[in-house]
């Protein structure tokens, strides 16, 4: 135990400031509303879904959990069930074999929900494209709020994309229908 504490004390803190939200990749620009941040309390629960990627994007998403990015310090955490999630972080291309599982995961996520498509494959289908086995980009299967290009995008850009999706949400008043009680 002494050895562990000594190791921790010697390395100190390495956490870096969060990046600015990604510009120009989200749906129609909505002004940033302080009340949105207030409503979310800057806390965000993310369910990651690999819908057919090569695992490259997953490696970089996992890197977000390292001490440099310290996303839990920003109030963001990855959760084990879509039932607990505010956001789906989806990598692609969506394979036809994952199409149904992705739709079900989306349906199991309570509204209001955000979807961020990570990587060139998630955003456009990438090098795999569409075929007998691939549905291509994520937005061919479920609605997407923000896409983060890159193959794979580095963690800071994924984080910028996540922040952009949170900021870009339209005011809650404009979308009362998104608060539907019960299962959806």
């Amino acid at each position: 135990m002494w050895h562990i504490l000594k190791y921790i004390a010697r390395r100190g803190r390495v956490t870096e400031p969060a990046p600015e939200p990604l510009e120009g990749t989200h749906r129609p620009a909505h002004p940033v509303h302080d009340e949105i941040l207030a409503i979310l309390g800057r806390a965000l629960a993310i369910r990651q879904v690999d819908a057919g990627s090569c695992n490259g994007c997953e490696l970089e998403i996992n890197a977000l959990n390292n001490p440099y990015y310290n996303i839990e310090g920003l109030g963001i955490r990855f959760v084990a069930s879509p039932r607990h999630a505010d956001m789906l972080l989806v990598t692609g291309p969506v394979s036809r074999h994952m199409e149904l599982a992705l739709r079900r995961t989306y349906d199991a996520t309570p509204a209001p929900k955000l979807v961020v498509a990570v990587g060139d494959c998630g955003g456009t289908g990438g090098i795999f494209g569409e075929s007998y086995a691939s549905c291509g980009r994520v937005s061919n299967v479920i609605p997407v709020d923000v896409t983060v290009p890159g193959c794979p995008p580095p963690p800071a850009e994924i984080l910028a994309g996540i922040l952009a999706a949170v900021r870009a949400r339209p005011p809650i008043e404009a979308e009362p229908a998104t608060f539907e009680p019960g299962f959806n």
């Binding site: 057919g52 990627s53 394979s95 074999h97 994952m98 090098i127 795999f128 075929s131 007998y132 086995a133």
Partner: peptide
Amino acid sequence: LGYTHKGIERR
């Protein structure tokens, strides 16, 4: 397995 089959060999 086979869920991430995306047709690489055909590609």
